[in-house]
């Protein structure tokens, strides 16, 4: 089980990013837990200033924009 956190103020791109991870996980049959983090203190606590950012199992793997689909697949398979 992988845990993802999508960091962002709740803008459209953040929702899209969370949806992308969810869809890819379903397609690949990987069990995931996705949490949307909107608290600014928490987002900056991860060292991320450009949203949306993605945190996988506690590590920041992406920041600033919707991640590329194959990148997301890479996280899920890795």
């Amino acid at each position: 089980m992988k845990s993802f956190k999508v960091l962002g103020s709740g803008c459209k791109n953040c929702v899209t990013a969370a949806k992308l991870i969810e869809d890819k996980a379903t397609a690949l049959g990987v069990e995931v837990e996705i949490e949307k983090v909107t608290d600014m203190a928490a987002i900056l606590g991860y060292g991320v200033m450009s949203t949306p950012g993605v945190v996988m199992d506690g590590k920041v793997v992406h920041a600033g924009g919707i991640p590329q689909p194959d990148k997301v697949e890479g996280w899920l398979k890795g």
């Binding site: 600014m40 203190a41 606590g45 991860y46 060292g47 991320v48 920041v60 920041a63």
Partner: peptide, 24 residues
């Protein structure tokens, strides 16, 4: 509240530097 926020170390994110990665 803004003044109370402490930022973590800026996250280092790996990027694909190959030609194909750049084009994508």
């Amino acid at each position: 509240y803004v003044w109370k926020i402490r930022m973590g170390e800026v996250a280092q994110i790996e990027v694909d530097e190959s030609l194909r990665g750049r084009v994508r």
